[in-house]
């Protein structure tokens, strides 16, 4: 099968200048490869760099070292860490979608306009874009009275679904999912899971973080398990546990 994304020895460290240049390792030396149309699940404890990894692929974070090769269907490939910001924007618009953990509503833009915006930016007629949006609203169970309201007032689950719809309306070939079911009730979670399975049938490549191991197992063709990013992180964790234990003892 054809490779879609190839990550070689990717490392991300944050340097915090405000804390005297303290360095935090998000993840180190990660390599993996994913074929077109497959689902790669990412597992690992909180703080092991799962979200950071996805953000680096989308260039929401800068990488510290490594390569990210995006392959196209004709055999060409491009290293996402080497291209300009303008080129990266074009790839984001045409080939890649990212659903973040937290939806940041655009102030004073209605649900309908939030969802159709990616198509409008591509030059679609508004009417045509709205037809596609309406079919998504039905699929995602968003009632008509919310279409012209501002998502900033919505519940966490509604926001999360709008976030997904905005990304899916443009049918990206590679989809990055950062806990898309995190703030959903059971009913909505099942809707999202069935949509993701439908996307798999449509041969959309996906990389996803799910905290629920059952969901991860259900969707993934392969699982990348992240280890703790370095001894330093682990020591801090032990330290925190010790502090918590001490605190519990004092309260008791």
């Amino acid at each position: 099968m054809a490779t879609h994304l190839e990550v070689n020895q990717l490392t991300k460290r944050f340097k915090l200048h405000i804390l005297e240049g303290k360095e935090i390792v998000a993840f180190q030396d990660i390599s993996f490869r994913i074929d077109r149309g497959r689902f790669l699940g990412i597992s690992g404890k909180s703080g092991y760099g799962k979200s950071s990894l996805i953000k680096c692929i989308y260039r929401n974070y800068d990488i510290t070292a490594g390569e990210i090769w995006l392959h196209d269907e004709t055999g060409g490939r491009v290293d996402l860490t080497q291209i300009s910001d303008i080129e990266m924007l074009a790839i984001r618009h045409r080939r890649m979608g990212y659903v973040s953990q937290f939806f940041q509503p655009i102030p004073r833009v209605t649900t309908m306009n939030v969802v159709i915006e990616p198509l409008i930016d591509k030059g679609w007629e508004r009417e045509r874009a709205m037809v596609r949006a309406k079919s998504l609203f039905q699929l995602f169970d968003i009632p008509a009275n919310l279409w012209d309201a501002y998502p900033s007032t919505f519940s966490g689950g509604e926001k999360q679904r709008i976030n997904l719809m905005r990304t899916l309306i443009d049918c990206p070939e590679l989809l990055l999912l950062d806990e898309p079911t995190a703030s959903l009730d059971r009913n909505n979670r099942e809707i999202i899971l069935s949509i993701i399975q439908e996307l798999k049938r449509q041969q959309i490549t996906m990389i996803g973080i799910f905290h629920n191991p059952d969901e991860l197992a259900l969707l993934s063709d392969e699982i990348l398990s992240l280890e703790r990013p370095g001894e330093e992180g682990n020591a801090a964790n032990d330290n925190r546990l010790a502090t918590a234990a001490r605190f519990a003892f004092q309260v008791g």
Binding site: R59, N60, D85
Partner: peptide, 11 residues
């Protein structure tokens, strides 16, 4: 850089 990159991961 990209606006979201500079805001989320300022160098």
């Amino acid at each position: 850089g990209l606006t979201d990159r500079v805001i989320d991961d300022p160098r």
